[in-house]
């Protein structure tokens, strides 16, 4: 049975077929959810919610061949909603990736910059964070992203530029902080961004 036939059977209410069809896309989903969320628990939660919505809505999908696009649109929606919820719940949590920080010397600068980037991306508004994720982490083209977000190409381009601009500003601000800490001495390079308890 082909992808489309699975999807067709799924639309007609065949649960087994739906699971089979999901099986074909699950790795791609996980990659997107994880790239956006940057942790396993949130990524899995987003996928669970996505499957739930797919299960309920599947019969409204008119074209079996659009299953992948349709499901990724739902996933993206779920991811972006989660972000908003989390933001409300814990607005100031910046970084907690302790295991990544045990590097020293010049590597630490790269690691720090990278960590910093991960943190800054996380703090972006959901739509900016999503375009950055899809463009730079998942290597999608602007038209692809526009289609998934159901926005004109121009809008996506604007979001991307604004996101990069915000990241640049945040980067320079964060670097100053980092250097301030280093100036204070004591292993600063190794633990630049641990949240204070």
């Amino acid at each position: 049975m082909s992808k489309e036939e699975w999807a067709k059977a799924a639309i007609q209410g065949d649960e087994a077929a739906l699971l089979q069809r999901i099986e074909l896309d699950k790795l791609q989903w996980y990659a997107i959810a994880y790239s956006y969320m940057r942790n396993e628990t949130d990524a899995l939660e987003a996928i669970q919610e996505t499957v739930c919505r797919i299960w309920i809505k599947i019969r409204t999908l008119r074209e079996p061949r659009f299953f992948t696009t349709w499901s990724i649109k739902i996933l993206i929606r779920v991811c972006m909603d989660t972000k908003r919820k989390q933001k409300r719940e814990r607005p100031t949590k910046v970084i907690a990736m302790h295991d990544e920080i045990n590097t020293i010397g010049s590597e630490s600068a790269i690691a720090a910059e990278r960590l910093d980037m991960a943190a800054q991306v996380k703090l972006l508004p959901a739509n900016y964070r999503m375009v950055i994720t899809l463009k730079y982490y998942r290597d999608m083209t602007i038209p692809e992203i526009a289609m998934l977000l159901e926005k004109p190409d121009g809008t996506v381009r604007t979001w991307l530029n604004k996101a990069l601009k915000l990241l640049r500003m945040d980067m320079s601000a964060a670097k100053e902080e980092l250097w301030d800490e280093q100036a204070k001495g004591h292993n600063a390079g190794a633990v630049p961004f641990r949240t204070t308890k």
């Binding site: 699950k26 940057r38 899995l44 991306v121």
Partner: peptide, 27 residues
């Protein structure tokens, strides 16, 4: 961002397949 992506790809290699399947079933 490029460095970040390299790290991300490394992290994605450790995909928790059993947990992913459980999430799908849970959904």
């Amino acid at each position: 961002l490029q460095n970040e992506k390299v790290q991300l790809i490394r992290e994605l290699e450790m995909m928790p397949e059993a947990a992913l399947d459980a999430a799908i079933r849970g959904g």
